[in-house]
Design a binder for these strands. Structure first.
Lengths: 94, 94
DNA sequence: TTAACATATGTTCAACTGTTCATATGTTCA
DNA sequence: TGAACATATGAACAGTTGAACATATGTTAA
């Protein structure tokens, strides 16, 4: 069980960064390429790319290429569930 | 929305540490005092105390005093839901 | 092939984080 | 009151992290 808990912490660590949460949240609305994401988040391309790689490694997003662009999207709807549950917790706190 | 997402990241950050996840997981089983938690996690009292403080500040646990001991417990069952959902995600990945 | 574009990657650095050690606070009981 | 116990807190240190910059890779179209 210890190992699973460590793995669980790793998962939450990925959600535990505002840039990555913003990326995931933005992708709830559908796939987007790196440039679009950088614009939407007002951050430079490199930072976005680095964070997308972490999300990809964690299997939270998937990618497809279309010409010069790479289109990222959520890899399954667990991501949405987790974000929503977290939001529930936050909203109940008032 | 940006602010909420930042707050959400803060919440997940708290779950994103193996010591804290272990503490929360251990508390699923009911309230425990600091010494018990330190023993169960094989960690020193100070480290446990520091992490409990973070959990407390985030309103994930609550405390009551009983004599010399401080008994910690989960503050609501959202914590359990979030842990379970995270586990679901991990277990489906095979 | 070459220029222009889109994205990825390597490196560096400042900021943050978790643990440990030492010590302070608070409680009980003799 | 004072000793023993339980927990909290402060400081210090090593390890980690995210962003920025520079540059590499890969794709398209001329």
């Amino acid at each position: 069980m210890e190992d699973r808990l460590i793995e669980l912490a790793e998962l939450f660590k990925v959600f535990g960064d505002s840039t990555r949460i913003k990326l995931l949240y933005t992708l709830l609305d559908g796939e987007k390429n790196v440039g679009e994401l950088a614009t939407l988040l007002s951050m430079n391309q490199s930072a976005i790319s680095h964070q997308l790689r972490i999300l990809k490694t964690s299997d939270l997003v998937k990618v497809r290429r279309d010409g010069k662009s790479m289109y990222y999207s959520l890899s399954d709807d667990h991501v949405e569930s987790i974000i929503k549950l977290g939001m529930d917790h936050i909203c109940e706190e008032d």
